[in-house]
């Protein structure tokens, strides 16, 4: 018995150590962002130091960071709204009015999420060029809405199926029309589900890079991921410490969203295949 307790403690220490080691690069980036540039590249590495906020000030206010951030925020916001607006009715029909084809439609919807974007990037580029969507936020909004549509339909349908059906039936008996049923009965009950699903959509949209880098380039449309990718080489006045500050600022919203939505993460990552 004593031995198994010792083994247990060792396993606990091992687990915490691995968790810390996996997280360490992110922590190191975070720490580097508060060092002076000289300190950031001086060795031996400093783990204790007086933090400076100078890098954050320069990386965020004296760089195009905020322009790209604004693009990311509005692209993420509008694509999620668009995906919800067309996804909620789809999920509703799939949940409450199933037909013979519902099951195969749901599987088809999921399969579109797994298509390689590289397979269609050329036609999308050419089509966008002809439709004047190249280098626009609207172009990415449309593509990201389609990217998140399967996630939203699968998750919201499963949340809708979990709703107590008597409540919906009662609303119908009271003569509620479709809009009233959705607006006053289903959506209020679905708010936690919609919030969790939107957080997951936010994670995917915020981090997306392939479509963004190939379809946008200017300050007016390109999201943060495109900006961060330019740090592959040293950029102007941004060196290691300032680069770390910008990269940290770019990942914090998603880290927080993921930590908050931890419970729904597995369901979201497998599109509801695992609850």
């Amino acid at each position: 018995m004593r031995q198994s307790k010792l083994t247990g403690n060792l396993l606990t220490v091992l687990t915490l150590f691995i968790a810390f080691a996996m997280f360490f690069p992110i922590l190191w980036m975070f720490m580097t962002s508060f060092k002076t540039e000289a300190m950031a590249i001086s060795f031996p590495p400093k783990f204790f130091f007086t933090p400076t906020f100078e890098n954050w000030r320069v990386a965020i206010f004296e760089s195009p960071f905020l322009r790209y951030l604004r693009n990311t925020v509005s692209i993420t916001f509008f694509s999620t709204i668009l995906a919800l607006v067309i996804g909620i009715p789809t999920a509703y029909a799939m949940a409450f009015y199933p037909t013979k084809r519902t099951n195969s439609s749901m599987l088809w919807i999921m399969s579109t999420r797994m298509l390689p974007p590289a397979g269609v990037i050329v036609p999308i580029y050419v089509l966008f060029n002809n439709l004047h969507l190249l280098n626009t936020q609207l172009g990415l909004v449309i593509l990201y809405a389609a990217m998140n549509f399967p996630l939203i339909v699968w998750m919201l349908r499963s949340f809708m199926l979990d709703l107590p059906y008597e409540i919906i039936e009662a609303a119908r008996l009271d003569g509620a029309n479709l809009w009233q049923e959705l607006r006053q009965v289903i959506l209020p009950l679905l708010i936690p589900g919609i919030a969790a699903t939107s957080l997951l959509a936010l994670i995917f949209t915020w981090n997306e890079f392939f479509l963004a880098v190939n379809l946008t380039s200017s300050l007016d449309a390109a999201p943060l991921s495109v900006y961060i990718s330019t740090f592959k080489a040293a950029q102007g006045n941004l060196f290691i410490a300032k680069m770390s500050a910008a990269a940290t600022a770019a990942v914090i919203p998603v880290l927080v969203a993921g930590w908050v939505a931890q419970k729904q993460l597995v369901t979201g990552l497998t599109m509801g295949a695992i609850k």
Binding site: M29, N207, K232, A250, L255
Partner: peptide, 19 residues
């Protein structure tokens, strides 16, 4: 442990490459 997965991949790449 879940944090590396949440990180924007290009930011992760910049972190590994440069830092």
């Amino acid at each position: 442990l879940i944090s590396p997965f949440l990180m924007m991949p290009v930011a992760a790449a910049v972190l590994w490459k440069n830092v």
